[in-house]
């Protein structure tokens, strides 16, 4: 299972690299969405691994809240690019 987590961490580095180098703000937003989802899934994997329901509930909440924050931020940036 540790190998699975390390593979997920390596996959997490891909959107981080994308968020670092990319100039287009929507690409950065996509990278942010990818990272937020990946970290939440990693929290869920760890919770299953440790059989810890407390962490699992937190992972589910973060998974849903991350999308809401992303939508809010995308709306503000969209208003910005229209101006």
């Amino acid at each position: 299972m540790t190998l699975v987590l390390i593979a997920m961490i390596l996959a997490l580095l891909i959107p981080m690299c994308e968020a670092w180098k990319d100039e287009d703000i929507w690409q950065t937003m996509l990278a942010f969405a990818s990272i937020a989802t990946k970290t939440s899934v990693m929290i869920l994997v760890v919770s299953v691994l440790r059989d810890d329901w407390m962490i699992g509930v937190v992972g589910v909440i973060i998974l849903s809240v991350g999308n809401a924050a992303l939508m809010l931020l995308a709306h503000v940036i969209k208003r910005l690019s229209e101006a």
Binding site: M16, A19, I25, T28, M29, A31, F32, I35, A36, T39, S40, M42, I43, V46, S47, M54, I55, V57, V58, G59, I61, I62, V65, G66, A69, L70, L73
Partner: peptide, 27 residues
């Protein structure tokens, strides 16, 4: 946006280290 990335990353670390309440607050 990268601040959001940092927040997601911190929430992951806090949750993995066992501080579920801190992770929830960070998120």
């Amino acid at each position: 946006i990268i601040r959001g990335v940092l927040g997601a990353m911190s929430a992951l670390i806090y949750a993995v280290l066992g501080a579920a309440d801190v992770a929830l607050t960070e998120a």
